[in-house]
Design a protein around this nucleic acid. Structure first.
Lengths: 249, 249
DNA sequence: GCCGCCTTGGGATTCGATTCACAAGCGCAC
DNA sequence: GTGCGCTTGTGAATCGAATCCCAAGGCGGC
């Protein structure tokens, strides 16, 4: 696992020094973003790391460290300017980019995702709904027509689709992923319970809903066991999940 | 974050020594489980850490270390017995328990989750679908009637619901969570984009679909930047996610 | 304009997870 | 039965994340 080896930062001399943001921090930035969005609606103009930590469910030291990777944008004795912080985070996460997203596989989950407001609210525009079932093609979901998977190449090209959400049944996932890659998609959010094999330059991130339940089940059960022997057990406040981002050329 | 301090293992003298399984390992066990399930259908009786690693998208050393926490169940020179490993993992994850799960909030996502086969296939029985919308109550989803949220206490009690899947709109999530807790639910899989505040003995695990896209977006963008300065950047193969498990009494 | 309070930023440390590397052990061939 | 090749299991080393802690710095009160 190699990430921006030492030499890089110095070689990118022209622009501001490229900070390497830890993966764990990247995973938390969207949470801060969400919390800050809610705060700004409450007319909060300034927020301390303590308060932000409380709202995000983490501790203050972590918040400060995380935000320090974005640069020193806080004011000592005061806190962070909410608007500015929102801007910085959205910049860092690329939410200012207006990504075109295609949802592939309009079954139950695909439909739910298409209707899910949370995506568009974060700068992810749903640019296409694709399915290979002729019975579905042409019907409307979330005010959009379902288009046929065979149109993939054209659609990806014309609408500059960079990210695809894969919500097809597990057996079909690999072959559909192959088609996505061939069409030029370079990031895939995979909801199918499979490990996709893709070229190194394609990013895959897995979300497996059943796995989440299994992890809950583990801690649930262990807690009961612990009570049985009369012992108190605290589970850590942050558990990493069975998702992966794969490679980059 | 205290987890089964040293002294405990020795005190639980009767049964086999209680191993502390790292969080990261817990998150991967379900992946191995999934892969092994598929292997067993292919009539594979034995599997090496190398092969399992390939199928699970991790490296062999990690697989061996992870499995070693379950005990020494492999055979040197041969590999692991697939059936036995499946048994051990399901045991450890508590999948032999037949959990009763209630899905609360039958909107798009709740409906999709109700229809998602992956849950029942892993020992999670959907015991109730709940919603507070009178128009929905009584209608059938996935061969089950939607029941009213007011029945919560009775249902949780009668059907021994231990885990709830929370799929209500964000503004309602905290109050519904409070009701779940009062009814006796001790583990919650939260799909609402909020940080729930619950008593320490309740486990919460968050899944935020928009966050996943934002994380993808970050790496997608950074990769482009890197190309722009003519540099190759490899992103780690395992990224932790913005989900949390909270406390335990 | 100075003082005291508050909060950030970040170096140092601790903790946990990953990777390395190899001895131990098993099965098969002969 | 002996030896060889393969694969596990696990200490040791490394890497990355979380936490600790406090000096630096800004602000409001007086």
């Amino acid at each position: 696992m190699t990430v921006e080896r030492g030499g890089l930062a110095s070689r990118v001399s022209g622009e501001r020094t490229r900070r390497k943001i830890p993966e764990a921090t990247v995973a938390r930035l969207p949470v801060y973003f969400r919390v800050l969005l809610a705060s700004v609606e409450h007319k909060t103009t300034t927020i301390s790391s303590d308060r932000l930590a409380e709202l995000a469910g983490v501790n203050a030291a972590k918040v400060r460290k995380d935000l320090s990777y974005l640069g020193s944008y806080g004011t000592r004795g005061v806190g962070y300017d909410v608007e500015f912080l929102l801007y910085q985070i959205s910049q860092e996460l690329g939410l200012t980019n207006d990504w075109a997203v295609a949802i592939v596989g309009i079954g139950n989950l695909g439909q739910a995702l298409a209707n899910y407001g949370g995506f568009s609210a974060r700068g992810f525009r749903i640019a296409a709904l694709l399915d290979s079932d002729p019975a579905k093609v042409g019907t409307m979901v979330a005010d959009r027509p379902i288009e046929h998977l065979d149109e993939l190449d054209r659609i990806v090209h014309e609408r500059a689709v960079a990210i695809a959400v894969l919500a097809v049944p597990a057996p079909a996932s690999q072959s559909v992923a192959d088609r996505l890659v061939r069409a030029g998609v370079t990031s895939i959010l995979n909801f199918a319970p499979t490990v996709l094999s893709v070229p190194a330059e394609v990013l895959v991130r897995d979300v497996d809903l059943a796995i989440e339940l299994q992890i809950l089940s583990f801690y649930h059960r262990r807690r009961l066991d612990s009570f049985a022997v009369g012992t108190t057990v605290a589970v850590g406040t942050s558990v990493s999940v069975g998702t992966t981002v794969e490679a980059v050329g």
